[in-house]
C-alpha cells in the first residue's frame, strides 16, 4: 500500500501554504505521488492527500481525472510517450511506435511483461522542429530520432 514519504508529506504541506487557494496544490501534490510511485497514482493516494490537504477526495479526483499526465494505472519503468501529432506523424513516429510495440509484443498503452516499458501515443509536445520526438516519463525530450536511434536509446536506459 502506497504512502507518501515524510519529505513528500512536507512538500505537499508547503505547496498548500504556497498558493492563495489551497486547491492549487492538488496538481503539484499529484505529481509528487507519481514521482514516489513509479510514475502512477494509486487510488489510496487520493485519500491520503485528502487528509493531508484537508480537501475532499471528490475535488482531488476531479483534477486527477481531468489531466492526461496523471497515470491511473502502472506505466512500466519507462513510460515511452511518442508524439503522433502532425509534424511528428509526418516524420514517421507512427511507424516508430508500431515498430516498438511489435518488437515487444504489446499494444499501445500496454506494459511489457517484464514491466520495463509502456509505449503510448501522445499529442503534440512542442518539439516539431526536431521531429520525430518522444518523452520518457517526465524527463528531458529525446529529439531528432529515427527507429535505430530510438532502439538504441531504449537499450541504453539503466
Amino acid at each position: 500500500m502506497f504512502k507518501l514519504s515524510p519529505e513528500g508529506v512536507e512538500f505537499v504541506k508547503s505547496e498548500v501554504a504556497r498558493y492563495e487557494s489551497k486547491e492549487s496544490a492538488i496538481i503539484p501534490a499529484l505529481y509528487r505521488v507519481q514521482k514516489e510511485n513509479d510514475n502512477w497514482v494509486p487510488n489510496e493516494a487520493i485519500s491520503e492527500l485528502s487528509q493531508i490537504m484537508d480537501i475532499p477526495e471528490a475535488r482531488i479526483n476531479e483534477v486527477f481525472h481531468f489531466y492526461t499526465m496523471f497515470n491511473k494505472e502502472p506505466v512500466g519503468k519507462y513510460h515511452v510517450q511518442v508524439c503522433t501529432n502532425v509534424a511528428c506523424a509526418m516524420a514517421g513516429t507512427r511507424e516508430i511506435l508500431k515498430d516498438l510495440c511489435d518488437e515487444h509484443g504489446v499494444k499501445v498503452g500496454e506494459v511489457t511483461s517484464d514491466g520495463r516499458y509502456c509505449f503510448q501515443n501522445v499529442e503534440c509536445l512542442g518539439s516539431c522542429g526536431t521531429a520525430p520526438m518522444l518523452q520518457i516519463n517526465q524527463d528531458k525530450y529525446n529529439e531528432n530520432l529515427d527507429i535505430e536511434k530510438t532502439k538504441q536509446l531504449l537499450k541504453d536506459l539503466p
Partner: peptide, 9 residues
C-alpha cells in the same frame, strides 16, 4: 499546446 508550435519553449 497548439500543434506545431514550439517557439515559447
Amino acid at each position: 499546446g497548439e500543434p506545431c508550435t514550439f517557439k515559447d519553449r
